[in-house]
């Protein structure tokens, strides 16, 4: 399957190929992938793709997926309209 056609992050349309390239560029954490590719930075905030990103990181570094730290969760954990919180 061509990696450049397989979307991993649906929100930001980041492909497997781009994530692998980010790993080669030095990313070793979810946050490193985020800043290089924008994966996990869209509306769903990684609820869909973070586990996939971790799998790629683990695979490329020869570790278990569970050894990759989950990105820090920060509020708001759901999108909120500014008008709702003022």
């Amino acid at each position: 399957m061509p990696d450049d056609k397989l979307i991993v992050c649906r929100c930001e349309e980041v492909t497997l190929d781009e994530i692998k390239k980010a790993v080669k560029d030095g990313a070793s954490t979810v946050s490193g992938i985020k800043k290089r590719t924008r994966a996990c930075m869209g509306m769903c905030q990684g609820r869909v793709c973070q586990s996939l990103v971790k799998k790629v990181l683990a695979h490329e570094s020869g570790n278990q997926a569970d050894s990759i730290e989950t990105a820090t969760s920060r509020s708001p954990v759901r999108p909120i309209q500014l008008g709702e919180i003022i």
């Binding site: 649906r10 929100c11 349309e13 869209g42 509306m43 769903c44 609820r47 869909v48 999108p79």
Partner: peptide, 15 residues
């Protein structure tokens, strides 16, 4: 501009 529809069905994915 690609089309999107229902994906997770329970409010998580925002698609």
């Amino acid at each position: 501009g690609k089309p999107r529809g229902i994906y997770c069905g329970i409010g998580h994915c925002y698609e």
